[in-house]
Design a binder for these strands. Structure first.
Lengths: 348, 348
DNA sequence: GTGAAAGCGCTAACAG
DNA sequence: CTGTTAGCGCTTTCAC
């Protein structure tokens, strides 16, 4: 505090933050010595070390990462681009990635793409300008691999790939998960299984739709799907279309968390009991899935594993400089709860 | 791609990213001209502009933010320190803050403190070193204001203050929220209202505890509290202590989201119907609060508003250089659902 | 052990 | 309109 006043009084520079040279002068040593001190203090006599240290303390000096980076040092910062942190899947992923980054002494520069290729591009540009050491990316469906050509740092994709890009990628087994889900419903004896989903351009959606379709076809059951459901309104409309008449569905495979919840809520509003009126099986587990009445069966993705793996791959690649890329697909888990206990044997 | 090979062949520097000077040489112009181009392209002839632009394109050049910062420019980056992004409250806050930052062309450097003052310190240090333009902070209970003395950028606290620090702060009205919650239960005729909470060192917890206590005292009701509940196990133990005997509680005010859910789950496990066995009113709304059976009443905090306000204050302060600080307390909302409909009039 | 000096990539005066 | 030239804060030889 004294010093702050002092600085102003001597009107040296202006009231900006102290630089290494300020510390050097303050301690009566050369710049190189201060540099040595803040880099481990090796090859410095105890006397000078103490002097420099106290000068740093008094001035409240913090070395500028920017200046260090200029000299080619790493920025100790990785980028993370996701559609939104408000989405619990990506929030969990971000937390896991941050843990890994933190363990490596890195900070995370977070950018939201909103699934918009244009925004995504802008964010990538900003990250390149900041010279991040690496990037973890959940690409939009129209992501352009060329942006990363000249990036100068390794990139790992997770949750979704960039088609035709030579980038290591970590995915959940969307196709397998959808197959497992649908197969389970088939085995339970359901005959009219509706696939309810949205955002058909998303890689994950497509895989899940296909998984459902393939199992249905193989089982010789009628293919029923509503693939444009993106909010409560459209979910309700879709449901109404399939809940009445002699051809009413007896089970619903919902490919998205929010859709699953919509279906649950709509069923209550309509006074339809799950699983008596129809079975429900969702994609992605959620916190209160087993607190609902009935508890909802789901395909659970290993979110933390996916994100952690991606982060580990990134640091591995950052350290090794290895250019090779790989595709990792992590298995999902079928969590059977009461919402799809078995086809009704008797009709009311 | 051609260029990449070319660079290697001519072994100029090494395979590092192109710099402004590379562009200048490539385009046959001076450094200043390139600088002008990447800063808006004013005062540059169409011919040179085109030449430089195409050179930039070919080389895949991106100006280094680090070098710019060295010259005193802003980093266009703000820091955000929260306990964890995995917490939905802070995830929502982060999303809101990011929106504001994005609107100002800024990126967010995210750091997790885990409520640990030591980690928090480290994160602040790393952010100072990166010369962020501003910081938004949800401080740990033992946060040290002195860290930020020499930071060189404005800071805004949200959700919790740093005691005795001259820092603008945006809070939810925890005391008022707890009062409103407890008062509602009192008005409904409940007589034995238990306050269930944990993390008693957290500012938010303390305010909520006090709000409950003050209303209870004023109403002349017995003060009942279990303030060390931090997981399912301890919640169950606490509940068991107060659910039996002639002195059983008839209502529970839960001061934390997760605790509310625990109480709900435990009540189902025990076969106790809410609100017949006891009423339940929680703090912080959650997605499925109204999908549960019964729907849970809560105090809803304006999360997005709090975060947005904090971010706006920050940018305001960054732009004005204003050193003054303020305290903003945002009102909360009582969401009445079926979990505390009114005291039972008849005993079974 | 320690200091002087040369850049790292960029911007901001100045000259032309 | 355009090029030259200082630095910004730091690391890193290279002498002393």
């Amino acid at each position: 505090m004294r010093k702050a006043t002092h600085q102003l009084a001597t009107k040296e520079k202006n009231r900006s933050v102290p630089a290494l040279m300020d510390v050097a002068r303050h301690a009566g040593v050369g710049a190189a010595t201060v540099s040595r001190v803040i880099n481990g203090g090796h090859n410095v006599s105890p006397r000078t070390l103490a002097a420099v240290l106290s000068a740093i303390q008094e001035l409240g000096y913090h070395p500028s990462q920017a200046a260090r980076s200029l000299k080619g040092a790493r920025t100790k910062t990785i980028g993370l681009i996701i559609p939104s942190v408000a989405d619990s899947f990506f929030a969990s992923a971000a937390a896991a990635i941050q843990d890994v980054a933190s363990a490596h002494g890195c900070l995370v520069l977070l950018a939201a793409s909103d699934n918009d290729p244009v925004k995504e591009r802008e964010q990538v540009t900003m990250l390149i300008q900041r010279r991040i050491d690496g990037l973890i990316l959940a690409p939009s469906d129209a992501a352009d691999a060329n942006i990363l050509k000249h990036a100068g740092f390794p990139t790992i994709c997770f949750d979704r790939p960039i088609k035709g890009a030579a980038i290591s990628t970590v995915l959940g087994d969307n196709y397998g998960g959808a197959r497992a889900a649908t197969a389970h419903l088939v085995h339970q004896g359901y005959k009219r299984i509706l696939c309810l989903g949205g955002y058909p351009r998303l890689f994950t959606s497509q895989r899940r739709f296909r998984g459902h379709r393939d199992v249905i076809r193989k089982a010789g059951l009628p293919y029923l799907a509503e693939l444009e459901v993106e909010d409560y309104i459209s979910a309700e409309a879709a449901l109404l279309r399939h809940l009445n008449g002699p051809n009413a569905v007896d089970a619903i495979f919902s490919t998205k968390n929010s859709t699953t919840v919509y279906v649950y809520e709509i069923s209550r509003k309509l006074g339809l009991r799950i699983p008596d009126a129809f079975a429900l099986l969702g994609y992605d587990d959620f916190e209160l899935a087993d607190a609902l009445e009935p508890p909802i069966s789901v395909i659970r993705q290993p979110v933390a594993d996916i994100a952690t793996r991606a982060a580990q791959l990134l640091f591995q690649q950052m350290e090794s400089g290895d250019e090779s890329h790989s595709l990792t697909t992590l298995g999902v888990e079928l969590i059977v709860r009461a919402s799809c206990g078995g086809a009704r044997s008797t009709l009311p």
